[in-house]
Design a protein around this nucleic acid. Structure first.
Lengths: 231, 231
DNA sequence: CGTCATTTTGAAGCCCGTCAATCTAGGTGG
DNA sequence: CCACCTAGATTGACGGGCTTCAAAATGACG
């Protein structure tokens, strides 16, 4: 059991989508070495779980590439995706508050993550209190994300929500191509049923708003989506 | 212009709903004095604004009593309440990340808050790095709150959402009486129209689930609400 | 007592959920 | 290579819940 993690090379760090963060930069050569030895890298395939709600929160994860869904369950048992994490996003921050993970994290596409022990970050902050602002900024970004999901993806008609989701999925991509979740996941993301999600995507495809043969990827007409999203 | 704030007495601190937090406790007598002099108290009436989205984030607020709604606007201009803050809750934490406030805070009832300059908290943390965990815990609590709103108050039928909202409003109260927002605000809280909110509350009243003559307060049959909420 | 805001209630229509049937793509074994 | 199987996607039909528009009722306040 347990995912296999490997060490971090300096080449890994060169390509790191979060290398601008002070916390990870290190001030001198020996410190950079210390930081590098404290991090691990692993790849998760589609549908693989990073951690489960209730697990001891011993690690922070930094997404290097891919897409991770963070799930929470309502009192009535229904599953709801409360956030999507992409390259450069940090997940598992709740562990810093010495609490178990409150959400379940599952890869939606092939995903590479870099992990670090929460205990290490905690100790590092005692000797580098000025790095706290980076952490708070990260937390802040996570709060922003939660708000965005709340306001953008759970209000308006199914068409409007779907358009906003697709816009979210194409941003930060070079091309207008977006990874397309399956209909069940779309439903959990937007608070609608899988059937409605299917109807809307089929309709978008007929109207030429999205196109592409494959089921799990599509090219988007960003302008058209923006028109629909503002309803 | 600008709200009038007054100094904090030791008596205020005795009654503080957040006096268990280390950050606010102080280690010795002189430090307690320093902390007390760094805080201010003010009262906001119903509908008064604490701060507006986009304002420079220079202050943190701790709610002593009352109810504050935090609003965010969607791209289509619709207003949505993304969080309710009550006694003991901290609002304005985003300012610690050196960013402007991202939400607008408005009192929903008569509300007393204690405020502290973000700059003070930042400096305090440099000399007391161990207090950072309290801050992260606060941030974490705010994230939890956002999730709860997302999952509980924006999924399920209008009846179910309303029941959950009422349960949220009665908890932390001694009696089963809850402050009742107006129908417009209920709509913004639950993602439904004011008319539907009115219909549901009227129905609840006819069925005896809620009762009370006043429009802005009601007594709740908590057991009945729980049955409806898990529906 | 009259005015204005808010709430309540009504009626019509539509969007979405539910249930079910059909279609498609991918994988398996003969 | 093809028949078969299965999971997921699509599409249809129907009913119900919510929105919309509008009117009536209620309550606060000068």
């Amino acid at each position: 059991m347990g995912k296999l993690f490997r060490g971090v090379t300096s080449d890994d760090c060169e390509r790191c989508p979060a290398r601008h963060i002070d916390l990870l930069a290190g001030t001198d050569r020996t410190e950079q070495e210390l930081l590098r030895r404290s991090f691990d890298i692993a790849t998760f395939e589609h549908k693989e779980m990073l951690y489960r709600s209730g697990d001891a929160g011993d690690w922070l994860y930094l997404v290097r590439f891919g897409l991770v869904k963070l799930i929470r369950y309502s009192t009535s048992g229904a599953e709801r995706i409360v956030r999507l994490a992409r390259a450069g996003d940090t997940i598992g921050l709740s562990s810093l508050a010495r609490t178990p993970y409150r959400r379940t994290a599952i890869a939606m596409t092939r995903t590479e993550v870099c992990r670090v022990a929460t205990e290490f970050v905690r100790r590092y902050n005692l000797t580098h209190p000025e790095s706290m602002e980076d952490l708070l900024g990260k937390f802040q970004a996570e709060l922003e994300g939660a708000d965005t999901f709340l306001v953008e993806l759970s209000t308006g008609s199914a068409h409007v929500r779907m358009a906003r989701l697709l816009l979210f999925l194409v941003e930060r991509q070079e091309h207008t191509e977006a990874p397309l979740p399956n209909r069940e996941e779309m439903g959990a993301l937007l608070g609608i049923t899988a059937e409605t999600a299917s109807r809307v995507t089929a309709e978008f495809r007929r109207e030429g708003v999205i196109s592409g043969i494959h089921m799990d990827r599509c090219a988007c007409d960003v302008e058209a989506l923006r028109r629909i999203a503002t309803g």
